[in-house]
Every structure is written in structure tokens, then in C-alpha cells.
């Protein structure tokens, strides 16, 4: 079997100027192997210029169960958006 090979999450930067994006996961015995396997698996058609591999066990994620209390505080602060403010029509470049 994969004989206890841990799971790694793979992130690829598609081209310079973009951030790394999660593309999937794979199993590998260590970080070097994870990187090589990711190279063989994900950018087979030049879909990337840089790869990160992260042990899946090292990721701390927010829980979908606490979605509301966790994200709601942002919803009632509409004044954070520029459209909240009333500006006279004749004002330009604002």
C-alpha cells in the first residue's frame, strides 16, 4: 500500500505575478518526494512555475460548523465598503 506515506497538499503558482493556488493532494514519504511527485502530476502541460507542498496534517482550518459566528462579524460592517458613502454627483476622481 502507500505504507503510511503521509498526505501532502499541493499549491501551484501558474505564472509570475500570481499567488500559489491549491490544486490537490498526493502521498509521498518525505518533502523531496512530494515535490517531485507534484512536479510529475500537476504541471504536465506547463501549468506552473513554482510548487509548494505542505503536510496536510499541518493545516489548521476553520470549521464549517462555526461558519456563522466566525464570519458574521464582517457582514455588519458595511461602512468598510466604498459604496457605503454618499458623495455629491459632481465630485470626480473619488
Amino acid at each position: 500500500m502507500t505504507a503510511g506515506w503521509p498526505l501532502w497538499e499541493v499549491f501551484v503558482r501558474a505564472r509570475r505575478g500570481l499567488s500559489h493556488t491549491h490544486v490537490g493532494s498526493l502521498h509521498a514519504a518525505d518533502a523531496t518526494m512530494a515535490l517531485r511527485n507534484a512536479r510529475d502530476l500537476y504541471p504536465r502541460r506547463s501549468e506552473g512555475v513554482s510548487i509548494w507542498v505542505v503536510p496536510a496534517a499541518s493545516i489548521t482550518a476553520s470549521s464549517p460548523d462555526e461558519k456563522e459566528p466566525f464570519f458574521d462579524p464582517a457582514a455588519d460592517k458595511v461602512y468598510r465598503h466604498p459604496t457605503f458613502y454618499e458623495i455629491p454627483d459632481e465630485v470626480e476622481h473619488l
Binding site: 505504507a3 514519504a29 518525505d30
Partner: peptide, 14 residues
């Protein structure tokens, strides 16, 4: 199987 086992042994040794 031996390849998978060897890779784990190497990772553990490192």
C-alpha cells in the same frame, strides 16, 4: 512494495 517500504525507511532515517 519494496520501493514504498524503502522510501519510508529513508524518510525515517533522515
Amino acid at each position: 512494495a519494496w520501493v514504498r517500504e524503502a522510501a519510508v525507511a529513508y524518510a525515517n532515517k533522515r
